[in-house]
Design a binder for these strands. Structure first.
Length: 405
DNA sequence: CGAGATTCATGTGAAGTATACCTTTAGGCTTAA
DNA sequence: AAGCCTAAAGGTATACTTCACATGAATCTCGTA
């Protein structure tokens, strides 16, 4: 694109009538002023957490619900209300929110505690400190300011699955170490079964109160979408049926509103880019494809080199032997070859086995451990990405690994 | 023919190693009195 | 002598390796009908 073109592009971008009037409303981190169809949950939450306003420690809560059922928004909303109320009445209440899923931020015991301490304005190095020491810093930071601390751990199932429940045990016992402050834990999980594998002490302590978020049905999703859409879009930009289809698509999965909202936003963006006057069904379909694609591509791009190399090996193998199932051993052979080609130091098969398991967790591939009787046992690996995206992934990997074909 | 025993190829857990990074401490150098 | 900087020592988390054992159904073995 020449510079002239670019100027023209900007000019036409600015003169073009935008479809959005407030796109923020459809962005992921937006907290609405009112939350629909969650009155019960919010009421219960408020009920449990309200003692904090009298400077008494609320019970710990365990919250369960599938993704996009409003868990995070509700707890954010409720705590926000409590915090502002607490500020008015000069009651010291604090809130710490942490999403344990974030890789490299909160996926080990050390990092979680360090991150929590950082929320309290402490500087903690990424490595080098003994975990006990980090605990101490954290305890001290909390004890510095008297009050009620509400610690929200989002997606703790991911954390516990990876590093065990010791952190939770320590955190539930934290109150006996403190004399000024008191801590309430809020655990949020997507996985219901996960609670059963916890240490009984942790489990009983964490789930003093128990809250379930059922999935939204299509009608509820429609309500919510309509709410947001009227705020986000200019009037009558949405073609009839778009909203309904958007809701239906998400309801079919498991009532994931976050996805529905994202879908609507991306559809709007696509329509805008095409200089369409209205958002129609085709835009929606395109958006659905794009979202999944973007998610995967982003994921692939941000993986460590070794993960990318492993994935590249798997992809290659899949291409070569279309319908045959691929096993860890095969992947490893190709992987070693890839390493030689790229100058990467090959890891052991043991490690690759783990990497494959992690790629599975990310949802890029699907694996199943099967026993082939006499012929041992292995993972059966399949690609869990729509076929159209694979070439894109390929090019990303080629570039990332610096392979010339 | 059927119940065990065997076998294979890898899953999986535990323990050890290398690396990168942290704090503390001791020594050396500079500076100001 | 006090203050500051540097380098070494001692310690940790994390990613990875090494070692060793666990798995589980296809296949084999062998006693029995």
């Amino acid at each position: 694109m020449g510079q002239k073109d670019l100027e023209g592009f900007f000019a036409s971008f600015l003169t073009k009538a935008p479809l959005f009037q407030n796109k923020k409303v459809l962005q992921a981190n937006y907290t609405p002023d009112s939350i629909m169809h969650r009155d019960d949950q919010i009421k219960q939450m408020a009920h449990v957490l309200s003692p904090s306003l009298r400077n008494e420690k609320p019970s710990n809560i365990f919250i369960y619900g599938k993704t996009g059922t409003g868990k995070t928004v509700c707890i954010r909303y409720t705590t926000k209300k409590i915090l502002s109320l607490a500020e008015q009445t000069k009651v010291p209440v604090f809130m710490l929110y942490l999403n344990c899923k974030l890789k490299k931020v909160a996926d080990t015991e050390y990092r979680v505690i360090a991150q929590l301490a950082r929320e309290l304005k402490k500087t903690i190095p990424a490595t080098g400190l003994p975990t006990d020491e980090v605990y101490n810093i954290f305890y001290k930071a909390i004890n510095e300011k008297e009050g009620i601390y509400i610690i929200i751990l989002d997606e703790i199932d991911q954390l516990v699955k990876k590093v065990g429940d010791e952190i939770l045990y320590n955190l539930t016992r934290i109150n006996s170490e403190l004399d000024n402050a008191q801590v309430t834990l809020v655990g949020i999980s997507n996985d219901l079964v996960f609670a059963d594998n916890l240490d009984p002490r942790v489990k009983s302590s964490l789930s003093e109160e128990y809250l379930v978020f059922p999935p939204y049905n299509a009608l509820q999703i429609q309500d919510i979408l309509r709410e947001r859409a009227t705020k986000a879009f200019k009037p009558s930009v949405l073609q009839p049926g778009v909203l309904e289809k958007c809701a239906a698509l998400s309801a079919r999965e498991h009532g994931d509103v976050r996805r529905a909202i994202e879908l609507l936003r991306v559809a709007g963006e696509i329509a805008e880019r095409k200089s369409a006057v209205k958002v129609n069904i085709e835009h929606l379909d395109e958006a659905e494809e794009k979202i999944e694609k973007d998610r995967v591509l982003e994921l692939v791009e941000t993986q460590p080199k070794q993960f990318q190399a492993t994935l590249y090996a798997i992809l290659n193998l899949c291409k070569k032997q279309k319908n045959e199932q691929i096993s860890t051993g095969d992947v490893y052979e190709i992987y070693k070859h890839v390493c030689k080609q790229t100058g990467l130091i090959p890891l052991t098969q043991r490690r690759i086995s783990d990497i494959i398991a992690e790629l599975d967790m990310l949802g890029i591939i699907g694996t199943r451990v099967i026993s082939k009787g006499r012929h041992g046992r292995t993972r059966e690996i399949t690609i869990a990405v729509p076929d159209q995206t694979i070439p894109k992934i390929y090019t990303i990997l080629l570039e990332a690994l610096d392979i010339k074909e």
